[in-house]
Design a protein around this nucleic acid. Sequence first.
DNA 1: GTCCGTCTCCCCCGTGCGGGGGAGGGCCGT
DNA 2: ACGGCCCTCCCCCGCACGGGGGAGACGGAC
Lengths: 218, 218
Amino acid sequence: MPVTVLLVDDEPLVRAGLRAVLEAQPDIEVVGEAADGAAVIPLVRRLRPDVVAMDVRMPLMDGIEATRAVLRTVPGPPKILVVTTFEDDEFVYEALRAGADGFLLKRARPAEIVHAVRLVAAGDSLLFPASVRRLAARYGDGGRPARAALERARLTEREAEVLRQMARGLSNAEIAARLVVSAETVKSHVSAVLAKLGARDRTQAVIAAYESGFVEPG
Amino acid sequence: MPVTVLLVDDEPLVRAGLRAVLEAQPDIEVVGEAADGAAVIPLVRRLRPDVVAMDVRMPLMDGIEATRAVLRTVPGPPKILVVTTFEDDEFVYEALRAGADGFLLKRARPAEIVHAVRLVAAGDSLLFPASVRRLAARYGDGGRPARAALERARLTEREAEVLRQMARGLSNAEIAARLVVSAETVKSHVSAVLAKLGARDRTQAVIAAYESGFVEPG
DNA sequence: GTCCGTCTCCCCCGTGCGGGGGAGGGCCGT
DNA sequence: ACGGCCCTCCCCCGCACGGGGGAGACGGAC
């Protein structure tokens, strides 16, 4: 029976590439895709893949956290193959500590990608050494709004609605008019949203909304 | 007759992804691939593609140089669609100066990628990955942020820098500290940005930044 | 029944924000 | 040399925003 793989990457292009590469193999089958780590656990429970190809950087829940979550909550967990664009020792170390079984660069050749999947599926570990690229900076504390956005699931319906309106650039008064409530009510909801997202002001909340995929550009 | 495309990217995975996305369209045909800018010129001469999807960073010859080389040496050159992973103004301006016809983020959704190829093939330019018309339709009150976002080209360097900081959720005081200028100077730039983008407040400006592709989620 | 979460509305209050002005110096093209 | 653009900094001023409280009504959960 074939090796079943679940693809987890926020970029559809990368998912399409991995799917094209892996499905060219008769003994490998891509059984599902996810765009964020937050969606992984239920998918793993339902699809029971042999291998999860897990991206590191994702909006709602990153690959490291998702790896921990899967291994902690799912009995008889799949092998985790962490996929990333460039080598980063911190990520490597963190991923291994989280329980990942392998490490793979996106710039690897198709044969290497296939090989990695087969290897971890067979129970072996795979680690790519040779750290060449060091993408410095990736400036500052930009991770704060995104990580705080993890709380998005805990937004109430009304708060989510208010956040959607905020993300359209509406003022409190405009939101109040649109939702047919008082401005004070909107203020309450906005404050709750800011608190739950860990945002300091509405701008940071809107940024979190975009970064987490809660609203989409275009 | 279909739009013919030549893929130029050093990562096979990305090429596979682009091929999968583009060949799903009946009117688009991928006629060739290259792993480096250095291989582009002879391929363009032989294959005569309508569009070249050109990666920016490649080992032997980068996308900017390759674009210059193609446009300089090939008569009746193809349209150049520069593909990049993240937004970088230097690359944008350099590529435009080199004669590129459009830009495309690898993070873009498949529909956007297809749209970009069709657009440049038709002779239009595509400065922003995201379609702006849908925005105008969505903002019933005239699409202020969206349409105004087109004026991004007219933002001065300093204003663009300030907008980037705004899009990271920083306050005026924080931006001032980071750029080592006074808060009043930042306020001046912010006001200029708001005016040029047609935004009422910084939140709307940040929304415009996301919607126009000036900043990239994730 | 009681508790708890949600939605709704209200008060005060400080301040960051943005509008509308102005002004000086530097660089560049003509 | 001059005008024009950019960057820098400053003033006043109104107000929307956000924090920190509280409170009543409804519903489901226990």
